[in-house]
Simulated scan of single mutants.
Amino acid sequence: MTGERRRSSDPTPNRAWNEALDALEGDVLAAEQTLARDRAEEIAAWGRRSTDWIPPSGLGPLPDDLRERAARLLQHQLAVAEDLVERITQSRKQRDVAARMNYGPSRPVASFIDRGL
């Protein structure tokens, strides 16, 4: 019991985890702001991110008193990720439809017919 108490009251793991969770929350809020601005290219950029989050070294196990915060953050991340995927998919569909639409002739069309008499 004493070891467990000392671990949960030790501020170092909590501080490191709080900083990591703060950084993740910042990313989620930035993604939400991007969605709110409704700029297709910015939204698409989130879809092109190719790096996964890598926990800082030496982070250790998640302290029990931060589990609820981490769980809420995870749910928030999943909701925002779902919104991003939906918006990216919509944008791609719109782009595909626009590409297929014929906005004008692809070759010159005669504007008159010259008939020989």
Rank of each mutant, 00 (worst) to 15 (best):
A45W: 00
G60P: 08
F112W: 10
R6W: 10
A71T: 11
D64H: 11
A36W: 00
T89F: 04
R48E: 12
R5V: 15
T12C: 05
V28S: 07
W53M: 14
A70W: 00
I88G: 01
D52W: 00
A71R: 14
D64C: 07
T12Q: 13
T51V: 14
R37P: 01
A45D: 05
Q77P: 03
F112R: 12
L84P: 00
I54R: 14
D83H: 04
D114P: 02
V85H: 09
S57E: 15
D38V: 05
D96R: 04
N102H: 08
G60W: 03
P56H: 07
P55H: 12
W46L: 13
T2Q: 13
A70N: 06
W17E: 00
R7L: 13
D27L: 05
D64N: 12
G116Y: 06
A36N: 08
N18S: 09
P108T: 11
W46Q: 05
D65A: 15
L84Y: 00
S106M: 10
K93E: 11
P63L: 02
E32P: 02
G104S: 14
D38R: 14
L66N: 03
I43K: 00
S111V: 13
W17S: 00
R115P: 06
L24W: 07
I54H: 10
P108M: 09
A23L: 11
T34K: 02
R69C: 04
D96C: 01
S106C: 08
L73R: 01
Y103L: 11
A81W: 07
I54L: 13
P13K: 03
P63E: 08
R72F: 14
T12K: 09
E4T: 10
P11W: 06
R72G: 05
L62Y: 04
A81C: 06
E68P: 03
W46A: 03
R107I: 15
A98D: 13
R5L: 12
D38E: 14
S50P: 01
D52M: 05
I43L: 08
L62E: 02
G60I: 04
A71Q: 10
N18Q: 13
P11E: 07
E25S: 12
E25Y: 05
R15V: 07
R39C: 07
N14L: 07
A40Y: 01
W53Y: 15
D27I: 04
E41S: 05
D83R: 09
L74E: 14
D10Q: 10
S9I: 08
I88Y: 03
R92D: 02
P61F: 04
R100L: 12
R6G: 05
S111W: 09
G26K: 06
Q90L: 11
R100C: 04
D64V: 14
D22M: 07
V85C: 05
S50E: 15
R6K: 15
